[in-house]
Write a protein that binds this DNA or RNA. Structure first.
Lengths: 228, 228
DNA sequence: GAAAACATATTGTTGAACAATCCTTCGTCA
DNA sequence: TGACGAAGGATTGTTCAACAATATGTTTTC
């Protein structure tokens, strides 16, 4: 039972009562899922979780409501809650969002910070040379988050975070398929070159095509994994 | 106490237990707020509401979690929950989102349905001639929702609905200021003309400028109302 | 008149209880 | 043996009542 293993070392709510216990529980579960300690498809039993984290079922439920709204977990009535495992439809949804938001941010975002993007590239290249796959994946996601920050909208940033969280679920669900991120580092770098030159619409177009290819590649691998 | 008046004729949860009582309660409150029966700033007391709707405080809380995530209500710890009243910052956030999503949908949305947009225009014009302000406002919002549908992303549609719900809160908070929508009907119509001609990028630019002016106008009226 | 202390009301959280539903297991029957 | 159906168990859905924590309002004190 791999779930229990992940539950065993969960932080307990100790004497100090947290301001918002529900939000705190949601944050803990969210990070556990993002890190891959709770894999897609895993069941989150109310009884086990409430006992493991030292909170009541009611409070746990409030956390579930938050996470379900973030689409990190899936609630099936009278069956329970499970870590979401996005399929091909989910991936298509993810890229439908990204294909709109990211080019728009590149082309029209009022708060574009090219230097910050360049800094992320440097970080990604360093991680690539170190062979640190996880760190590079993080840097890659950070790049896209930074790009969306150009929109100046916290709602859009939030949505992008949600979508990137689902992306992590897709990767976790594939059980460490080949390295997707490494050859995107230089594509991101070329975007920065375009943006620094002020060719923002051109950058948006390049980004759009880049997202199309990424989606196609991901879907291919996903279908292979499903066929297996 | 205007709150109690709005609470008095709330539907009660009768014998038949709803599948998801929390979601049902959230839906009822959401519509009451959207219709303006619960005005921005109104306090939603747990005790009063749970009694009025015939559900327990716990279930009501789950509904609050949903609505808070939709930014329809604001939760202040140990103080209570209130109907959100977006200020100038909120309006700027709203338009930051719209300025990205809507032009992107117009320019690049894969599922653009010009006929559907034209149909909404027809409806809006009819309402305008009838002098039905509410119906025209609805049609106007429907136009923008239909536009975002072109993105093919349910996440973006959801975000747009959230944003438009906040727009309604802004209008309700102003206590029926002058008619904002009527002279936007023809602007929307000119957008449809551009889109039908295939000039999608041009339509996106026009839309962007239109949103800029709408935001400026709204902010002016809002500041006047605040000064009052 | 201002600050501290108390009183009150509301939210935050918990535990237990019961109903509703699903899954499993067992028994029956062909 | 295999399929169909019913009893049983486990989990979720919902409610209730109680207590703790916190903010507000009032009174007391200097």
């Amino acid at each position: 039972m791999p779930v229990n293993a992940a539950l065993s070392n969960l932080p307990l709510a100790e004497g100090s009562t947290h301001a918002h216990t529900g939000a705190w529980v949601a944050a803990v579960l969210r990070s556990r899922i993002a890190e891959g300690q709770l894999l897609p498809g895993a069941k989150l039993s109310e009884q086990a979780l409430s006992a493991a984290m030292g909170v009541s079922r009611n409070t746990l439920r409030e956390a579930f409501a938050v996470l379900a709204h973030e689409l990190v977990i899936t609630r099936i009535p009278n069956r329970g809650v499970f870590v979401s495992s996005p399929g091909t439809a989910g991936v298509q949804e993810i890229y439908a969002v990204r294909r709109m938001i990211e080019p728009a941010a590149a082309a029209w975002g009022p708060d574009l910070d090219v230097d910050a993007l360049a800094a992320v590239i440097v970080e990604a290249r360093a991680a690539l040379q170190d062979g640190d796959i996880d760190k590079m994946a993080d840097a890659n996601q950070c790049f896209h988050e930074e790009l969306v920050r150009a929109t100046g909208s916290s709602h859009l940033q939030e949505l992008m975070s949600k979508v990137l969280a689902q992306m992590r679920l897709v990767f976790h669900g594939m059980g460490h398929a080949p390295d997707f991120h490494s050859h995107y580092v230089e594509l991101n770098a070329s975007l920065v070159v375009l943006l620094r030159a002020g060719k923002r619409v051109q950058a948006a177009e390049a980004l759009s095509g880049y997202l199309d290819r990424a989606e196609a590649e991901l879907l291919t691998h996903l279908r292979d994994a499903e066929d297996h």
